[in-house]
């Protein structure tokens, strides 16, 4: 463990808590893409299959349980409890355009051709594009609530910090995972436009508005 990965995990945790807080306090999931949340739940479900077979540390297991459970709660809140506030008309990104290519790529490009490894690879590739429905929805609505922009900033920062973690681990531990690094860079690059808007607008107290 290193400081970059720890802050990254805390940023990821914060993002999930911010989203749950937003939905619970406003009793609404307006402006949130349910499709991205479904993808995140799928990412955790396919990545943490080793939860009961490979024990890394109490921290690792606790966080995995937290991520799996909160992602399922988030999907439940969006599609059941607060369904009336779910903006389906703007959440129209076709998930099959992401899941099918990512699934195919995971079959073709992986570290070894075993079910667990292919599912882990699928999860890594899927996570790198899972935010696209959310970004797409925001470009259609042309704006986002401030709390939602904080959620996205924390979520985007987590993988950016993981890139620093991989640099650290490469130089100090000789650890290197090309699949995770490439996917992590793609994932972080997808946030660049949002990061720019967040830093130039939200941090100046303005509302986040995207060029629709």
């Amino acid at each position: 463990m290193n400081i970059f990965r720890l802050i990254g995990d805390m940023s990821h945790l914060l993002a999930i808590v911010l989203l749950l807080l937003k939905m619970w306090k406003t009793r609404s999931c307006a402006g949130i893409s349910g499709k991205s949340q479904i993808l995140f739940a799928l990412v955790f479900a396919t990545r943490y299959l080793d939860l009961f077979t490979a024990f890394i540390s109490a921290y690792n297991s606790t966080m995995k349980l937290f991520f799996i459970s909160t992602s399922l709660v988030t999907v439940y809140l969006m599609y059941f409890k607060f369904r009336a506030t779910y903006d389906a008309n703007h959440d129209t990104f076709r998930l099959e355009f992401l899941v099918v290519p990512v699934g195919g790529l995971a079959f073709l490009v992986n570290h070894n051709f075993s079910p667990l490894e292919i599912l882990w690879t699928f999860s890594i590739y899927l996570e790198s594009v899972a935010i696209l429905p959310q970004l797409f929805m925001m470009s259609k609505t042309g704006e986002a609530e401030t709390i939602t922009s904080h959620y996205l900033f924390a979520l985007g920062s987590y993988r950016a910090l993981y890139i620093l973690n991989w640099v650290f681990r490469y130089y100090f531990e000789g650890f290197f995972d090309l699949i995770a690094v490439v996917a992590g860079c793609v994932q972080t690059i997808l946030y660049c436009d949002f990061f720019y808007l967040y830093i130039t607008k939200v941090l100046k107290g303005k509302k986040l508005s995207l060029p629709a």
């Binding site: 080793d50 995995k64 570290h111 973690n165 290197f176 995972d177």
Partner: peptide
């Protein structure tokens, strides 16, 4: 099939 890097990250 090279050995996959250890999976100790979230």
């Amino acid at each position: 099939d090279d050995a996959a890097p250890e999976k100790d990250e979230l």
